[in-house]
Design a protein around this nucleic acid. Structure first.
Lengths: 218, 218
DNA sequence: ATTCAACGTACTGTATACGAAATTCAGAAT
DNA sequence: ATTCTGAATTTCGTATACAGTACGTTGAAT
């Protein structure tokens, strides 16, 4: 039984990918007909994907005015960051005791992350997978889904930051701190360290965002 | 300048309303063409609304098989309940110190709630407004939006419970406990009481859900 | 030169049309 | 009676068509 996938899901991923790659910078306008012809599908699935992205906060949409990539806004990052900190910490506390192989896999991902230089998208993909792996012991599927959806937001900021600053790698220090806390102190301890590290990274990214030049109109 | 509202938003509210009223019980199938003709619009905005509801977890949708109202499932309630507990508590802690008139408005809502007998929908509307009022001091708009969206889920369970049990009113005891904690001990104290009361109510509702008969197919 | 208005273009939001997959119901075989 | 099969029908997912609105552009008036 092959799982057929709706076109809207594929379009969703394609558009998100373009945003992550920076092909669609903040403020860029998205014309559904144009995207449709580029992707070789009709406007219908494109609009469904864009509506979803708008509801997830990646795009702005005002009636009759179509869609555009939401501009980078320090307060948005702060708001979503606060939510994510609480939710990921919660997921960690709800998790089952992690089997040793998961710690190994986390370490392996960090090794890959350190070796990756020059491709921000790959870095961020690994970073995402690290988080997924960290939380995969959480039985609350709904929570994990919500976290994955919300993580799109800081990811976009981080991608822009890396492009702008020319920093093409990602520090693994917070990861190792969290992993050590998880190994030594258990999940609650790891959750506390997570929140602390998360807040620190968020503040750094927020400071950069606040000092950014406003969007190009395009 | 009147704000024109997309049809999909109106359809969204209509469908949600029918679900809340019990016109569309758990497991009921939603045929987009049928809804479209009933509401006097085309299938397009109807499908946009249904896709949104599916993403929010109110509906199930599998490829080629359309939409149906998600069945009541104790584990879903538990999962969303855990998320909501954390988020509402967070919103409370992030809130500004509440002005005295807000406490008055909360008390007034409770008075209305106690006087309302016989209409579950009205009860739940007041309950929703009570929560909105409690958290309206929270500056994190994004958080409030997320909470409002997630609250659809327990609301549906509560509506089904009230219909089933013939309980046509809602206890205001948890509200007063939280309000008192807020007045006496501040937001952090209120957040703690909130989590405790929330967990209690959730367990009660979950117990009822677990003992429910499975859905009618319809 | 600048500003305002009227027009034209283009894009959005909504409606309708079409092809394919899935459910249903009839009828035959066990 | 029950189960399997297969055609008919429904309904979904996608494509296309249409109408109304926002925006740009041009031209005229100050």
């Amino acid at each position: 039984m092959i799982a057929r996938v709706p076109l809207r899901d594929e379009v969703y991923r394609q558009v998100l990918d373009r945003i992550h790659r920076g092909d669609l910078p903040a403020g860029a306008r998205l014309r559904d007909a144009e995207l449709a012809s580029q992707l070789g599908v009709s406007r219908t699935p494109v609009r469904e994907a864009l509506l979803r992205l708008a509801r997830e906060g990646v795009l702005d949409s005002s009636m009759g005015r179509g869609f555009r990539v939401r501009s980078l806004d320090a307060s948005e990052l702060e708001e979503v960051g606060a939510i994510l900190g609480a939710l990921e910490s919660l997921a960690l506390r709800l998790s089952a005791e992690p089997p040793p192989d998961r710690l190994d896999r986390l370490a392996e991902l960090d090794r890959r992350l350190e070796q990756t230089r020059g491709d921000a998208v790959v870095c961020l993909d690994i970073e995402d997978e690290w988080h997924r792996t960290l939380l995969e012991g959480c039985p609350n599927r709904r929570l994990l889904e919500l976290i994955a959806s919300l993580r799109q937001v800081p990811r976009r900021y981080l991608a822009a930051f890396m492009r702008d600053a020319g920093r093409l790698s990602l520090s693994t220090l917070p990861h190792t701190k969290i992993a050590h806390a998880l190994r030594d102190g258990g999940r609650d301890s790891a959750a506390a360290v997570f929140e602390q590290q998360w807040r620190r990274g968020l503040a750094e990214l927020g400071a950069w965002t606040a000092g950014r030049t406003p969007d190009p109109k395009s």
